[in-house]
Nucleic acid binder design. Structure first.
Lengths: 341, 341
DNA sequence: ATGCTTCGGGATAACGTTATCCCACACTGA
DNA sequence: TCAGTGTGGGATAACGTTATCCCGAAGCAT
C-alpha cells in the first residue's frame, strides 16, 4: 500500500496501436492477427507479424482480461510458502494443464493475513480460489461466493460459507495407525496432536478416542491435543513416559508434532514405537525410519482444481466434500514391539 | 490455453457505475471516495460508503492497474513450489512489506517452462521479476530488460542479459567446509556435487579444487561433479570408499547430494565425516546430526527485493551482484575424526 | 452489365478504472 | 450588489484490449 514500484522512467511498452501504425493496418487487424483469426489475408498477417517482432510487442494481459471478462488465473491461499507444499505444487501443475495461471499467496497461519490475501485475489478477479482455511469463519467471503466465485477448501472445510472441500480421510488414517500399533502388540497407545479448535486436530483426536474405545484400551492420560510448540510436546511426552503404566507407543497428529517428538526422544527413538500423521522428507532416512500415514497431496491438489472447474462450469451444482484416502507407509518406527514388562 | 474457466453464468459484479447510480452521485465521486480523496463532503462520503457496502462493491484491480500503469505485483519464477523454499518466503514477506503482491510460478527446472512462466509475467506487466535462472541464456529477456523491466537473479546469475544478481558466497562456504574437516584431522577429502554446467556446481567444484591445491592434498579421484541422481551419487561414493587410500571425509555440493550420500552411507554415516552445502530440515535430528554450510535465504530474498526496488527507482543504475555470506553450522557429522589407520 | 452474395478489413464502442478539465455554487470583501 | 476566490463535484477522455457493426471490393449468375 505504501510505495509501489515505478519511480523511474520506465520506457513505455509498445501497444497494439503502435503495431498497427508500424504495419500500416487498422488496430482491429492487429488484434485479429494476435488472436489467430483466420479471416486475415496471408500477406497482411506476415506484415503484422513483422511489425510485432520489430517492436517487441507483447499483448497486455490485464487489458485482455478486462475486455474478455475472465482472468485465466486462480488464487491459492496456502499457509506457508517456505515449507514444502505438495498440494500447492499439484494445484500448480493441474492448473497449468488447463491453461490457468496460479496466484499463490501465503497466509502465514494468520487470520487477518488470510483475509487480506483472499480479498486481494478477489480484487484481481481471479476465476477461482483454492484455500487452506485458517480462520474459524469465512463469512467475509459469503458475498463473493454468492456472486459466483468458485471456492474450494483444502485440508479443512471453510466455516461460515458454503464451499466445496477436499479433505484427507483423517479417521481412516488414525485407524490405520492405531491398528498397525495394535498388530505389533501395543496395548497402551498415546496420541499427541493439534489443538482441537483446529478441524484436523479435532477430527484426529476424536478418531483416536474412538479407536481406543473400540479396542477397550486405556484413555486416561493418553490424549494430548493442544498448540504445537516444542515445550508442549515435550511436556506431554514426558507425562506419557513417566506414568506408572506408561504408553508403549505414540501416534502424532501432524508433522510438527512428529518432529518434536523425535527431537525429544533422541536416542530413545529406537525403543519407542511411533506412527506419525502425514509424511515428510527424510522420514525414511531417520533411524529407525518413521512409519507414517501419508496424505495423497497430489490427489488433493488435482481434485481441488477439478472441483473448481466443475463449479465454474455450473455454479448451481450442490456443494461437495471429497475425501481423499490416506496410506500407511511402514518404515520401522511403527513396527517396533513393546518392551517386555 | 485450452478451456479457461467461466462456462457458467457467474453473476456480474457491481461496478463503480452501479455504486454511483445507487448513491445518486457521479462516477467520479465514487472513485474519489474509494481513493480517499479529501475533497468530498462528509455526507456524500457516507452515502457512497453505504452504497458500496449495500452492493458488496470491490474495485477491479485490473482496471486500476491498467489505468494507473502499474501492477503492484512482482513475479517470482522459482524452480519448485513443492519443496521448501525459504527464499520465496522471504521475497513474499519483503514484498508484502512494500505493498506488493507476488505472482509465484514454478519453472520445474525446465528451460521452456521458465521461459513460458517469465513471459506470462511480462504479459501481466509485473513491476519486476525475481528469477532463479535455469537456462544457460536468457536473451529472450533482453528486450524486456532493455525496456526497463527490473530483473534480479537469485542463486545463479542470468546468462545473456545484464541483470542484478544475489548469490551465496560459494567459495567461502566450500572453504569453511574444507577447513572444518581439516581442523578435525582429515587429509583426504572428497567432493560430490552438481554438474559443472550449472553455475553453482561450477563455482563450488572450483573452490574445492582450490582448497585442495592450497592444502596440498590429493586431488585425483576426489572430485565428482555431475547430474544429481541416486545412482550417480552412489557410484561416486562407492568409488571414494573403495579406493586404495580412501577419502575419510566428504563435502557434498547441495542438499540432494547430501541426502543421497546419507542414504547410501546408512548406518555407516556415523563413521564418515560429512559436511553438506546448504541446510535442510531435520539435519539436526539425524544421527549424527549433519554439519552444513547454511545459505542465508532470508537475507537473499530481502536483498533481491531491495535490488528490485532500487532498479525500479533508477533504471540507469549500474548492474550489481551482491554476495551474501554463508555460515557453517557444526552439528557433529563434520567433526567426526578420521579413522585411525 | 447488373444485382447478389461473400469476405476481408476498418471505425467505433465497450470493459472498469482514474485524471483532466471545467462549471456551478457558496462565500468573502468593497 | 457585484466581482473575486475557492471548492465540491460532474462530464469526459484516456489506459490497451476485443466485439459489433458496417462498408467496399471482388466473384458469380442472370
Amino acid at each position: 500500500m505504501t510505495d509501489r514500484l515505478g519511480g523511474g522512467v520506465r520506457r513505455k511498452r509498445p501497444t497494439m496501436r503502435d503495431v498497427a501504425r508500424e504495419a500500416g493496418v487498422a488496430l482491429r487487424t492487429v488484434s485479429r492477427v494476435v488472436n489467430a483469426d483466420p479471416t486475415v489475408g496471408a500477406h497482411l498477417v506476415s506484415r503484422v507479424q513483422a511489425a510485432i517482432t520489430a517492436l517487441d510487442y507483447e499483448p497486455d494481459e490485464r487489458a485482455q482480461q478486462l475486455r474478455r471478462g475472465t482472468s485465466g488465473t486462480i488464487g491459492a491461499a496456502v499457509r506457508n510458502l517456505a515449507d514444502a507444499h505438495p498440494v500447492l505444487s499439484a494445484v500448480d501443475t493441474a492448473s497449468r494443464a488447463r491453461g490457468l495461471a496460479v496466484l499463490a499467496m501465503s497466509t502465514e497461519d494468520d487470520e487477518a493475513r488470510e483475509r487480506e490475501a483472499v480479498m486481494s485475489m478477489c480484487r484481481r478477479r481471479v476465476d477461482g480460489i483454492v484455500i487452506e482455511p485458517i480462520g474459524m469463519t469465512h463469512d467475509y467471503l459469503s458475498a463473493e461466493v454468492a456472486a459466483g466465485l468458485p471456492l474450494v477448501a483444502v485440508d479443512r472445510p471453510c466455516g461460515g460459507v458454503e464451499a466445496d472441500a477436499v479433505l484427507s480421510d483423517n479417521a481412516a488414517g488414525i485407524g490405520m495407525a492405531y491398528r498397525q500399533l495394535s498388530v505389533h502388540g501395543h496395548r497402551r497407545i498415546a496420541y499427541i496432536g493439534d489443538d482441537e479448535r483446529i478441524f484436523t486436530g479435532r477430527e484426529r483426536a476424536a478418531a483416536f478416542r474412538a479407536c481406543v474405545a473400540a479396542a477397550g484400551g486405556p484413555l486416561a492420560g493418553m490424549v494430548f491435543p493442544g498448540v504445537v510448540t516444542t515445550g508442549r510436546v515435550a511436556v506431554a511426552l514426558d507425562a506419557v513416559l513417566s506414568a506408572p503404566r506408561p504408553a508403549t507407543a505414540l501416534i502424532t497428529g501432524n508433522v510438527a508434532t512428529t518432529i518434536e517428538a523425535l527431537r525429544f526422544l533422541g536416542a530413545d527413538a529406537g525403543r519407542f514405537a511411533l506412527v506419525g500423521f502425514d509424511d515428510f522428507t527424510l522420514a525414511d532416512i531417520l533411524r529407525p525410519a518413521v512409519t507414517v500415514v501419508a496424505q495423497n497431496s497430489a490427489e488433493i491438489g488435482r481434485t481441488a482444481i477439478d472441483l473448481l472447474t466443475a463449479r465454474a462450469a455450473d455454479p448451481g451444482r450442490p456443494v461437495q466434500t471429497v475425501t481423499v484416502p490416506v496410506e500407511l507407509i511402514a518404515r520401522g518406527s511403527g513396527e517396533l514391539p513393546p518392551p517386555p514388562d
